[in-house]
Amino acid sequence: MLMYLVEISDQISGFNVFRYLTFRTAGAIITALLFVFLFGPAIIRGLRVRQGKGQPIREDGPQSHLLTKKGTPTMGGLMILTGMIMATLLWANWANPYVWIVLFVTVGFALIGFYDDYLKVSRSSHKGFSSRMRLAIEAVIAGVACFAVAQLGEDAFSTSVTFPFFKDILLDLGWFFVPFGMFVIVGAGNAVNLTDGLDGLAIVPVMIASATFGVIAYLSGNEIFAEYLQIHYVPGTGELLVLCGAMVGAGLGFLWFNAPPAAIFMGDTGSLALGGMLGSISVVTKHELVLAIVGGLFVLEAVSVIIQVASFKLTGRRVFRMAPIHHHFEHKGWTEAQVVIRFWIIAVVLALIGLSTLKLR
């Protein structure tokens, strides 16, 4: 919205700074951070009153969780998303369609997660509504977004997949691009959702991935930088840097309250939405495969669950002591802080590897 102040920059030269993505991104970070800092305590109090017993804790999980996490309210994603969306609308260019596509996926997935959290709290059970129905709705939202991305792009490139480390290889998926993009977005949403199991475990890797894809979006949307790095130029994606910045700011504010011992949990409201956001940004910027690298921690969490379920159904045995894999390490004797910090380190390393794909071609 503030972008429109550029139109009167001829009369007030100071408003010319709103032309610059870096300035507006910094503004979005600060705005989202301050919003969560200022309104977070009131949101937490309101959720605690309405939820009573808070988020149900899995009885088959680490026994320490039943003591340290019982009664903690969930749906903290409302804090993150409100701050992020407000800052994005304030600082981003409303004329950019990619901003609206990513927000569409983010809000859509947030509503699914919110309903799931509501059912868990109201029923005092860790089980929400039907997983099949949930995946079906997610797929519809992702499908609409991918179709819009395909329509906005240029010729065959709009339905193509690029490959990290290779500058000239393009695979045109044609009509199959939409189901491929749906898989990426839905997969990312649920992978982040599975990662959200310990205080601070999900939010920091999400911030790291968001910052990384903010850089990727900025470089992909800048013709000069894209040509220099020999990556594919996608006009308009640079504006997503503002959205990613808003997410980082809101995430920092949330981490203040989510740091152990957490005063609030992100819940499916936040984790599903933020994962969907990352997936949709990767589709828009044509870096879907890079997301598998940058978000490798989320992939690991999801794969651990798939392996555990498949192994138990086929052989009756469990590969891990408990899935997702962060609980496996807890059962092996790692403290919660050790698991969280070590997983953060992994997220940083994977982000650096993901960024290196922009130059190593």
Rank of each mutant, 00 (worst) to 15 (best):
F180T: 04
L90G: 03
E7H: 12
R342E: 13
W256M: 06
F298R: 03
V105Q: 04
T72A: 10
R58F: 01
N190R: 10
V149E: 00
L67R: 15
G270L: 14
T74E: 10
I112E: 11
A92Y: 07
R361S: 12
G52I: 08
I57T: 05
G253K: 01
F213L: 04
L198N: 14
G270N: 13
D60R: 14
T159C: 01
A28G: 04
A92L: 04
F225W: 12
D168G: 12
M79G: 11
S124G: 00
K120R: 15
G71V: 05
F109A: 05
V248N: 04
I101R: 13
I216V: 14
R58W: 01
L274S: 02
Y4S: 15
M84W: 02
L5K: 03
I29T: 02
I43Y: 08
F114I: 13
D199T: 13
P56R: 11
L355H: 09
I44Q: 05
V186Y: 08
P97K: 11
S311V: 01
G214V: 07
E227G: 02
A150I: 02
L170M: 12
K313E: 12
I345P: 02
I341K: 08
G267Q: 11
G76E: 09
F165D: 08
G249F: 09
L243Q: 08
T269F: 12
M84A: 14
L103Y: 11
F254D: 12
R317M: 01
I12S: 02
G238Q: 00
E154S: 13
L78E: 04
A145S: 13
P261M: 09
V192I: 15
L360P: 00
R132G: 14
P41C: 02
M84P: 01
V17G: 11
K167S: 14
T335W: 09
A110L: 06
M75I: 10
L360D: 07
Q308P: 00
F129E: 10
L352E: 01
K286S: 07
A351M: 07
K313Q: 13
W344Q: 08
F166A: 03
I12M: 09
I341E: 00
S124E: 12
K332S: 11
H328L: 05
I281H: 02
T285I: 08
H327L: 09
I44A: 05
P235G: 04
S220C: 11
I353A: 14
G253V: 03
G52R: 09
L89T: 06
I203S: 10
K69E: 08
F15K: 06
S282M: 12
K167R: 12
A246L: 08
V49L: 14
V248K: 03
P56A: 11
L291T: 00
L350P: 04
W91E: 04
Q51V: 03
R321M: 15
A217S: 15
F265C: 07
V17H: 14
E154H: 10
G295C: 05
I29N: 01
A226Y: 08
K70T: 15
F257N: 12
F18V: 14
I85L: 10
I112F: 09
I306G: 01
W256L: 09
A26T: 09
V121Q: 04
P235W: 02
Q230P: 00
